[in-house]
Design a protein around this nucleic acid. Structure first.
Length: 198
DNA sequence: AGTCTAACCTATTCAAGGG
DNA sequence: CCCTTGAATAGGTTAGACT
């Protein structure tokens, strides 16, 4: 059924037959390691491909300009996937750090409460006493930790994702939280134009 | 404002190569 | 033979030039 249709097509449109033969002959070919290296170093210089560079690479590497464009397109897609993976790892690590800290603080609160109980002083009385002393509203440890986590999320959402601030290792502005010990970054980062919108 | 075009993106296909 | 990788394609979006 398919063969019959194909025959009809090629008889009606000889150009189509040419194209089909061309397609059969021209199988997908892998780029040589030299071509790959050259394209890769060019990509590291600049993630975007301007027409002059495309033509230059095309001549240098003996590839069609279209092939150069396609390679850069696919390379950007791969790069973006890697970025997302690293961003995910980074956020996961930060979440673990904050969770651990929250647990430690909660443990500390439990210990302190137990101590107060031993001394025969109720926690509500102690909270009232603390409020009078500091003149501020009292907060539970849960609320402060959750607020910190919320703030960190807001910080992330507030950033322009295209700037990749988190992935580039910038610290959060959260007071009292040190996120310097996040996951290691990629060994290298290509130049991304300021106006680059993935 | 509407149209055209080039360049780009994402998703997908498919050939090549490795285990 | 199956799975992964990467070159290529399809179809949609966007920005800029032009009328």
């Amino acid at each position: 059924m398919v063969e019959v249709k194909q025959q009809e097509w090629t008889e009606t449109f000889p150009e189509m037959e040419k194209m089909m033969n061309y397609k059969n002959q021209e199988k997908k070919k892998r780029l040589t390691s030299e071509q790959m290296e050259s394209l890769e170093s060019s990509f590291q210089e600049e993630i975007k491909l301007d027409p002059q560079r495309k033509m230059k690479l095309s001549k240098e590497l003996g590839l069609q300009p279209r092939q150069i464009a396609v390679w850069f397109q696919n390379r950007r897609a791969r790069w973006k996937t890697k970025q997302l993976e690293h961003l995910y790892d980074s956020l996961k690590h930060q979440f673990n750090v904050v969770s651990k800290e929250k647990q430690q603080l909660q443990d500390e609160v439990m210990k302190l409460k137990a101590m107060l109980k031993e001394q025969g002083c109720s926690s509500s009385r102690m909270q009232c006493y603390y409020s009078e002393m500091s003149g501020e509203e009292t907060e539970t440890v849960e609320s402060t930790s959750e607020a910190a986590l919320l703030c960190s999320n807001m910080e992330i959402k507030g950033k322009n994702h295209n700037q990749f601030n988190i992935a580039e290792g910038n610290c959060f502005n959260l007071e009292g939280y040190n996120f310097n010990n996040s996951v290691p970054l990629l060994p290298y980062w290509p130049n991304v134009p300021h106006n680059y919108q993935p």
